[in-house]
Every structure is written in C-alpha cells, then in structure tokens.
Design a protein around this nucleic acid. Structure first.
Lengths: 184, 184
DNA sequence: CAGTATCGAAACTGTAGGTAGCGAAACCTG
DNA sequence: CAGGTTTCGCTACCTACAGTTTCGATACTG
C-alpha cells in the first residue's frame, strides 16, 4: 500500500512544481530576470499564474526555489581535502554554467538586498547546506567554509555577470589553486 | 582666461552630476535597487526626473555611473606585486563596503543579463580599466588579471549579497592569501 | 449526492520606468 | 534691450509587471 497518512477532502493539488521550476530557469535564461514575468513563466510551464502564487509567495522565492532545485545536494566526496576541493569547484562551475542559473542569482541577490525574508531563505536554503557540506568534505571550520563558498561561487558568478561567458578550463584550475590556499 | 573652447548658445547645463550620483548610491543604500525609484533619486538630489534622463539613458546606466564615480581610479602602487596585491585587495574591500555599492552592483548585474548595452558599459567603464591597472601593478598577463578581478570583487560582493555584512579582517587576509596564489 | 479544495482564466490594483509637452529661466549674439 | 537657443522642472501620460481578487469549473472525499 502507498504511504498516504491522511488524504484530505477536496481536489488534490497537481504536482506542477518540477515543471514550474524548470520553466522558471528556462525563461530567466531566455529573457533575463526582469524579462521573465510570472505570466510568461506560467505559460511556459503550462499552468496558471494563480497556481504558481499558491505555491510560492513571490517571484523571488520562486526563483530561489528554482536555484535550489538546480543545484541539488552536494555530491558525495570521500577523499583528501585537496582532492575534494577540486571536485567541488568543478561541480560548482558546472552548476553556475547551467542555463539561467547566473541570471537567476543576480536577480535574487538584487531583490534580497531590500528583502530580509528572501535573504533568510537564501541563507537557509543555499548557503548553510553547502557550507555544512564543505566543513565536512574539507575539514575546515565554519568561517573558513563560508569564505570558500564566497570565493568559489562569487568568482564564478562575477565572471558570468560581467562577461556573460563561462570560465575557461585553465581559469578553473587557477580558481582551484586559489581556493586551495585557504585549506591549510 | 578660463579654458572654454567653444561656448554654445542657450541655457548652460547645471552641473548636477555629482549630486545625482551621490543621491543614487545613497538611495540605493537605503531602499535597495528596486526601491530606489528615479522619482526618489531625483528628489534626493534636488532635481527633476527629466533632468536625470537627459544625462543617463536608463536606471541601469545611471547606477553604473554612480558605481564608477564611487570607485574612482585605481590607487597608485609602486612596489612588489605581492605587496601591491595586498593593498589592492584592501582598496577593493573598502570600496565594496561603501554604502550602496553592493546593492548597486547586484541590481546592475541583474539588468545586464538581458541588456547588452549595459553589459558593454560595465566592461568598458569598470572591468577594463581595473584589469589594465592590475596587469601593470601585478605584472601578470591579461587573462590572469581578469581572473583576479573576478576573484576579489566576486568574493567581496557574494559575501555582502548573501549575508549583508562586510568581511572580517581575518577573512580579508585570507582572501589576499588566496589571490596571491594566482601571482605566479 | 453534499462538501471541500484546487484549477485556470480574467479582471483589477498599484507602482515604476520612461516619454512628451510646455512655460519659465539662463545663457548667447547683435 | 531684442531675438534666438537650450536647459530646467513640472505635470501628465503610456506601458508593463508584481501581486490580488473573483468565479465558474473540476476532482477529489465520505
């Protein structure tokens, strides 16, 4: 039997979340954060704007959720800190290079400046999980893990934000080198 | 005699630029990028919205100009690359900590994603001058100077974007250490 | 069937970026 | 001073989008 602890009455919710989150990133990728209107996202997801607002309270929280789903959990690493760091930098670079991710980050950061709720969401949904994972994978204290997150993600996003292009392979290696300087 | 090569007829332009740029950063600092409406900026600068639009074609170009004026030219450095790098990291950290700068960057980056003109402006007005200065001060090739700009500014901005707080002194020293790993 | 909750479409509100028109002000030349 | 030119600042306006409200239709439960 399927695990349904307590089926409430009324029309059940359709599971539109995956389609909406994917459509969000896709639309942000194509039209930018401002150009990705809720009407367009809803149309791309094949649903209605009202249905989206029933699940996410604002555009900022929606895009944040799309980012969280695009990143997913940290990949499992089980080696030396220096090895793990290289793998994690590459993992981060791959995610930031995903279509729409950089634009979504920029838009969310801009909104978060004047929206404490959104800032808290960013911290709890994105920063803290990855910070905790880094502490373990790299065997560093909290403050150091935070700085490494800032360093890796910040560098990757700044590159995309200014040039619009992803990093070259040699730049990625250099970034790993720079981050390694924070390990010991 | 004053250096006026060719005074054209008509009412001369009032020099509102410094007041407007300062009011822009101040308003962005207080109300965030989205909350800093052109009407409010104009009121804070003691001028009219139309006057601002006669000088800057959009909110994005205005805020970019405010950033350029807040950063100003690179400070002169004349020492060993490793010394110079430490001074430049500190200079960058001071500028990013200026009220309004981080919020302005976030907003401009978000707009630049879907605005090629604004992206070009960012590149020519901000990235290229400082990249050139770094090449000289640090004795590194272009690609390396670009990466160092991304690393330093990206890290500083990411920290402010997520936590809203500036970096601690020890974090700054660590950032310098990481950047030094890219010197050679 | 009665009750309940969701869906989707449309209409609506408030606000902000950006533009247009215009009288007044500040300079020029003669 | 007169006539020409350009900017100033103000108001009114247009367009677009975030977010809300309303409502009939739909899909469940018991």
């Amino acid at each position: 039997m399927t695990a349904e602890p307590h089926r409430s009455p009324g029309r059940p919710r359709v599971d539109v979340d995956p389609a909406v989150l994917a459509a969000t990133l896709r639309t942000v990728h194509e039209l930018g954060y401002a150009g990705a209107t809720l009407d367009r996202i809803a149309a791309a997801a094949g649903t209605a704007k009202t249905t989206i607002y029933r699940r996410w309270s604002s555009k900022g929280t929606l895009v944040t959720a799309a980012l969280v789903s695009a990143f997913g959990p940290l990949p499992p690493v089980a080696g030396e800190p220096r090895q793990n760091l290289a793998a994690l930098v590459r993992w981060g670079a791959d995610r930031v290079a995903l279509p729409g991710v950089a634009a979504a980050f920029a838009g969310v950061f801009a909104e978060a400046v004047s929206d404490p709720d959104l800032r808290r969401l960013l911290r709890t949904q994105l920063q803290e999980p990855y910070r905790r994972g880094l502490e373990q994978a790299l065997a560093v204290p909290t403050a150091r893990a935070l700085l490494i997150v800032d360093l890796v993600v910040g560098t990757l996003l700044h590159r995309r934000g200014i040039t619009g292009e992803p990093m070259t392979e040699t730049d990625l290696q250099q970034l790993t080198t720079a981050a390694r300087a924070l390990l010991g």
